[in-house]
Amino acid sequence: MSEVSSRPGAAASPGPLQHHFADLKQQKAAASLGMWVFIAQEVLFFGGLFATYTVYRMTYPEAFSAGSQHLSWKIGFFNTLVLIASSLTMAMGVHSAALGRAKRIVAWLLATIFLGSLFLGVKYFEYEEKIAPCFGLGAGPGCLVPGERFDASVLHVAVDMAPQTQIFYSLYFAMTGLHALHMIIGIPIILWIAHAAWRGRYSAEWHTPVEIVGLYWHFVDIIWIFLFPLLYLIGTH
């Protein structure tokens, strides 16, 4: 009968190692795999929406084109650049963590938060333009929130195409809304990680939380990389 000798550092230091792991390597592997598996789950979560999108875009190509033309590709383009820039700052944050430079982690993470908030701010104005008319506010007609008040008159489509453009806007709000929700959840987490980094919790040996939150943020970026052409660029020609 044999067993492994005492687990190195298990009980000795209160460091980052949790009691049920043998060593930091195992803990890192678990955390990293956990996030990848979570991302796999997210792929299918958004996947249901993308599948719905595919079916309806195939069925109603004109309505989708009309709905898309009313979205501003310039705003979408700007936001795409903002989001990939935030991915760069996040990658640099993880890079600094791997080098063990705590202060730089904080700076890069704060930059990421700034860019993420910028994206959400632009999104807010984009939404407002479509939502405000539903409550009689803003510039004239054109409520584009699906539902009873949906008003396709601003889209210049045949009357009978209105329900189909409504499907487009249902998908637009569901997809971008869910994407924005992921960012809204992500930002406080990054802030929390930045706080921990500022207090010197991470080192070149142990900075997995930074890596993990980075994976999450990059994934949210990838979703947007697909949303941008699929929603904003149908038939801009």
């Binding site: 958004f46 249901g48 719905t52 699906p146 539902g147 409504q166 569901a174």
Partner: peptide, 22 residues
């Protein structure tokens, strides 16, 4: 599998509550 039913049932709730069209 579960995320797909989660999003689907969420769309049902959106359609039910806010009259989104799916």
């Amino acid at each position: 599998g579960t995320p797909v039913v989660a999003i689907t049932i969420l769309l049902v709730a959106l359609e039910r509550l806010f009259h989104f069209g799916f």
